[in-house]
Each structure stands twice: as structure tokens, then as C-alpha cells.
Amino acid sequence: MPVQAVCTVAEAVRLNEFAYSFTLEAPALAAAISGPGQFVHIKCGHSRLLRRPISICDWDGETLRIVFEVRGEGTAWLARRSAGDRLDVLGPLGQGFRMARGEKLLLVGGGIGVPPMLGCAKYAGGSASAVLGFRAADRAMLLEAFEENCKAVSLCSDDGTLGVKGFVDALVCEWLEKEKDFTSVLACGPRPMLRAVARAAARYGVPCQVSMEERMACGVGACLGCAIQMADGTIKHVCKDGPVFAAEEVDWND
């Protein structure tokens, strides 16, 4: 059940030139989280009517953590907040990843899709492996946390400045080729990346779940704004039915 709460920013740190990590004091929200992959809807100043959806990266009994990059006015406003400031947050929202502790999972994150996979890694309790991709080394983040919480981590970057040069789907194929007993591939990142990962998982017959994005208004399923086309021709809603969907459900045509 979602909660609307005014939360104090307990910690605001910059992870690199582009990404910010906020820890929010949010006991009521944190208590309502059902698992990794849900998101919160954050009010970003009085002049913007719509809240901004941001994934929950990590949480404990008292706090939750979000990690975000500046993309436009709303996230720029958010980035200017500092410890002690208060934020109006609605959440937790949506359906997260369907997974169990101890599962042998392959987690795949690309760019700003990396943070929510940390929640999966922690929830799995060390049984997951991760493939993380960034545009370049200067965009990398949370690497130590993934090392701590995963069996293995492989890295890649578009320009070769971090890990191997190339996209995550090549590494996903390597992993699935090498080890046949992954129970699921869980992925978050830009749509073309998710499509490529979904294809790779399908080729190896491993179930795949993806976290999707769409422009939102209400964030709770009331306005029908965040429509996403499904492979069977129906429409679903990212905020309520997702953001996480089984990859084969999604219509990947643009």
C-alpha cells in the first residue's frame, strides 16, 4: 500500500559527475516495500506539476536510497537538495522484480538502470552475478557495493574506458553460455539495451524480467497515462502493472 510522506534527506552524495545518491528517512515507505524494483514518485519543486519517478535502489527498516542523474529541470531541482532538506515522496509504487532470496540470478544494469539492480543483489543475499554497463568510466557508480553483494561482477563500457568495450548483451551471452543454471535474468536500462538482453536470454531459454520507463502523471494507476504496448496487442501501465514486466510480454517494436 503506497504512502505519501514528507521525508528528510539524511544523506546526499555525488557518485560521479552525473549521478546523485540520496538516503531518505522514510520508515513508513520503507516498511511498505514488497521487494526490489519498485519506485517512488517525488515532488520536485512547486513550479512542476508532475512528480518524477525514481527507482528504489536500496532500503532498510528506516531509510530508502535513490540514485538519479540530471536529465531535465525536475532532476536538476532534485540534485540541488542537500542533507536536512525535506522531500514529498509517494510510494512505494508498482510491481518490482519477482525473485527469491538465494536464487542464482544474472542482474543486468545499464547506465542509470544500474542502481535498482543493487537492491536485487542485496535481496538475493549474495547469490547473484551482475553485468554492469556504462557509457564511459567517468559514469561508473556503485561498483564496490555490487562487488560486496554479488558472486561476480563483469563490467563493460561503450568506449572501452571501463571493463570490456561493448554492450552488456555480449557479456550476458558469455555468462549464459558458460553457466547453464541461472534461474532468471533481471535487467534495467535503456530500452534498446533491454531489448538486446531480452533476446539474449530468450536464445538461452532463461526467463527474463525488465524494468521499463514511460512518462507518468499519477504514478498509481488512476490516469492511464503511462501506457505500454504488450506483445499480445493489449496495453498495460508501467506504474501499476510494472515497471517490471516479463520480457516476452513486452512489444519490442518501436
Partner: peptide, 23 residues
């Protein structure tokens, strides 16, 4: 009715545009 294809929401100065289309 399935409504219109996404994107269906755009933020504007103190308002929003929607094209949900009677889903």
C-alpha cells in the same frame, strides 16, 4: 477501448497535456 499509443503525457507550464484517448 485500448486508448492511444504512448507517450500520452507531457508536462507544460503549470499544466499537463494528455492524449489517453478514452481507454
Amino acid at each position: 477501448r485500448e486508448g492511444n499509443p504512448p507517450p500520452r503525457i507531457a508536462e507544460t507550464p503549470m499544466g499537463i497535456l494528455n492524449s489517453v484517448g478514452l481507454q
